[in-house]
């Protein structure tokens, strides 16, 4: 069984590797880059929502904080881009660490609203701290990313970078969710009371998941900034936060690949609607394709509330490493 899974992974890796070689259109290439970036954000948020059982409707703020931190460090402080990519995610992580403890004490609706409010607050800051962020018109002149002497210019190169980062993220998430901590998260999911009663500091674990999710969002944001070389507040608003949450839910809570699938579906759907709706309704202007976006989400929530990947399997079977059993028997 393990080898079958490995084989599948290798196939996926090869397909991903070959994509830039097959696809020539820069439009499709950029779609795949966006999917990769969003998938990184969604993986982090998936840890928070699917494992730590907390919701964030402000994840775009962390994404934006990463992007702006990277952009400002690179343009105003003239730091080397690669260093910026490494340092920038620390800003959202720190913010998450500071706001995490009080905010994660809230539950359900209140947590939704608090994170949503936080997201909008940060978005307003992006727009209105003009001297630092360039205001609504944004920051330009972000240099290309270079690794050693290699400067990443083409979308193909950025694709490998972003999907490489996604690969690492997936590797880390797979490790984490199969580690004792992953098991503890599952335990917290069923009974927080019992988890506390066996000495587990649930608040601290949730906070760590929150910080990690902010870090990943920030990393994706930093990569985004160097890819587009120009950032403005608009991709970091409430709508993006909602989309990130939807990616996680649509893909399937508590699954490793769900967020990736969710990111692909949502980016794909958005692009499809952007193409299809004007074909069907040529006279209308504006981005009203969001109507269908909204409707499709409502339908998914009504008919597949657990997400597309969530087959009604018991998580029990897979949660314990089989290798352990064979060595201990």
């Amino acid at each position: 069984m393990g080898s079958k899974k490995n084989l599948l992974l290798i196939v996926i890796a090869i397909v991903v590797f070959c994509l830039p070689l097959i696809i020539e259109s820069s439009y499709y290439m950029s779609i795949f880059i966006v999917i990769g970036l969003y998938a990184i954000v969604a993986e982090g948020l998936g840890l928070l929502m699917g494992y730590a059982g907390q919701v964030s409707f402000g994840q775009a703020a962390f994404y934006g904080l990463g992007a702006y931190a990277a952009a400002i460090l690179a343009t105003r402080c003239q730091w080397p881009p690669l260093l910026c990519v490494c340092i920038a995610p620390l800003l959202p992580s720190m913010v998450a660490f500071i706001i995490g403890r009080p905010i994660l004490r809230l539950r359900e609706h209140y947590l939704v609203l608090a994170t949503l409010g936080f997201g909008i607050f940060v978005y307003v800051l992006f727009k209105d701290l003009g001297t630092l962020t360039g205001g609504p018109s944004g920051l330009t002149g972000i240099p290309y990313l270079n690794i050693g002497s290699l400067t990443l210019v083409t979308d193909q190169q950025y694709f490998y970078l972003v999907w490489g980062a996604l690969g690492l993220t997936l590797f880390g998430m797979a490790n984490l969710t199969r580690s004792p901590i992953g098991r503890v998260f599952k335990a917290i999911h069923t009974s927080e009371r019992a988890a506390e009663a066996v000495g587990i500091d649930t608040a601290s674990l949730k906070l760590q998941a929150f910080v990690l999710s902010a870090f990943l969002a920030g990393l994706a944001g930093a990569l985004y900034a160097f890819w587009v070389t120009f950032i403005s507040p608009s991709p970091f608003g409430f709508t993006s936060s909602v989309e990130f949450a939807l990616m996680v839910v649509v893909g399937g809570l508590g699954t490793l690949w769900g967020p990736v699938l969710g990111a692909a579906l949502i980016v794909g759907l958005t692009e499809f609607l952007r193409w299809a709706v004007p074909v069907a309704l040529p006279n209308a202007g504006g981005e009203f394709e969001i109507i269908f976006f909204g409707i499709i989400f409502v339908l998914i929530m009504l008919f597949r509330p657990k997400g597309l990947l969530a087959i009604e399997k018991s998580s029990v079977a897979m949660s314990h490493p089989t290798t352990l059993r064979s060595t201990d028997a």
Binding site: E108, T239, V249, E287, I290, I291, G294, F297, M301, L302
Partner: peptide, 25 residues
């Protein structure tokens, strides 16, 4: 709760899109 919240958000997105379609920007 999460599902219901997402549903109301979905409805709001759809309605905003409809408003945009009907009344423009």
């Amino acid at each position: 709760v999460l599902t219901l919240i997402i549903i109301t958000i979905g409805v709001s997105i759809a309605l905003r899109g409809a408003a945009l379609l009907i009344w423009g920007t």
